[in-house]
């Protein structure tokens, strides 16, 4: 930077941000000030360089190929993720509804006797699975797997 008090205006002048009167005054000053002329030359050289545009060469085909590859990978990972989540859900359901009651010799039928809580639901359940807790367990497993799959699908869609 030079020591001229008007030098502050040079960048504004280059940016075209000076008001008409200020611009006129600065141009008059510029004619007689060698320091500002020099500084303006430097600023113009910087501006010239900053406005340069660079070319990356021919990248179109590479982008298309990489895009296709990425989409194929995304699709593969989508199914892998959905499958993984389904397996997690199924495993959780088996552990929760079969393994733990089996290990604890838990009387599952008595716990799942919903008539204690809601008569309507018990009635419906009685129609769907008359006296057989196995069907109820299977139903819960199915719901768990279904929810896990739906959740994983939603996650993938969000990505």
């Amino acid at each position: 930077m030079n020591s001229c008090p008007q030098a502050e205006k040079i960048i504004y002048y280059c940016l075209g941000a000076l008001a008409d009167k200020a611009k006129e005054d600065f141009e008059i000053h510029l004619k007689s000030c060698e320091l500002c002329q020099h500084e303006l030359g430097v600023e113009m050289a910087i501006e010239n360089e900053l406005s340069q545009e660079f070319e990356p060469g021919f990248v179109e085909n590479r982008i298309r190929a990489r895009l296709e590859l990425r989409q194929a990978q995304d699709m593969r990972s989508f199914w892998l993720y959905a499958f993984r989540m389904a397996v997690y859900g199924l495993t959780a359901a088996i552990i929760g509804f079969v393994l733990i009651p089996f290990l604890l010799k838990f009387p599952l039928e008595s716990v799942l006797d919903l008539s204690k809580y809601t008569d309507g639901a018990a009635e419906l359940l009685g129609k769907l699975a008359p006296g057989n807790a196995f069907f109820v367990i299977l139903g819960f497993c199915f719901i768990a797997v279904f929810i896990a799959s739906m959740y994983s699908l939603a996650q993938i869609r969000r990505l």
Binding site: Q52, E53, F54, E55, P56, V59, E60, I63
Partner: peptide, 11 residues
Amino acid sequence: LVTIHKALVFT
């Protein structure tokens, strides 16, 4: 779209 904008992105 790539041809039009690649110089901008690359810069």
